[in-house]
């Protein structure tokens, strides 16, 4: 199986991934607020966060995440994929939006294809299912 690998050191915050995602899913419109990937800026660094598949159980490994000098207690990074505190909602309908990977072949996940800096890439990981 494949997954999207995020290298935050390469992200410059241009938000092409957000546009690519929303353009690919809405086709005739653009709306970064309906994208399934959003760029989080913290401590002057940029972190693309993907609204991935929901987890099956409540989070029982809640640990504080330390980035730079800041400790995150908002579950910011995980929340996008969290079934209990899902955060990427369609602003009109309120329904949660989720990454559907837009297929692996061309055109591939639109965000990966469009990322101009190489912060997003595809990686093959072993499947255990």
């Amino acid at each position: 199986m494949y997954k999207i690998k995020v290298d935050h050191t390469k992200c410059v915050g241009c938000r092409y991934c957000e546009l690519a995602c929303s353009l690919n899913h809405l086709t005739t419109a653009l709306n970064p607020k309906k994208a399934r990937i959003r760029v989080l800026k913290e401590n002057n660094r940029f972190f693309p966060v993907i609204s991935g598949p929901s987890t099956q159980a409540a989070c029982n490994i809640k640990i504080d995440l330390v980035i730079g000098e800041k400790v995150y207690d908002f579950c910011d990074i995980c929340r996008a994929a969290c079934p209990f505190k899902d955060i990427f909602k369609d602003p009109n309908t309120g329904s949660a939006v989720q990454c559907d990977f837009c297929g692996i072949d061309a055109p591939g996940p639109a965000c990966v294809k469009w990322c101009p800096t190489g912060a997003l890439s595809i990686e093959e990981v072993p499947s255990y299912i």
Binding site: L23, N24, L26, T27, T28, A29, L30, N31, K33, K34, P91, N92
Partner: peptide
């Protein structure tokens, strides 16, 4: 803002 931005011809824009 959370509104859609619409295009005349989305496909050729992409």
């Amino acid at each position: 803002g959370t509104k859609d931005i619409l295009f005349n011809d989305g496909k050729s824009f992409i």
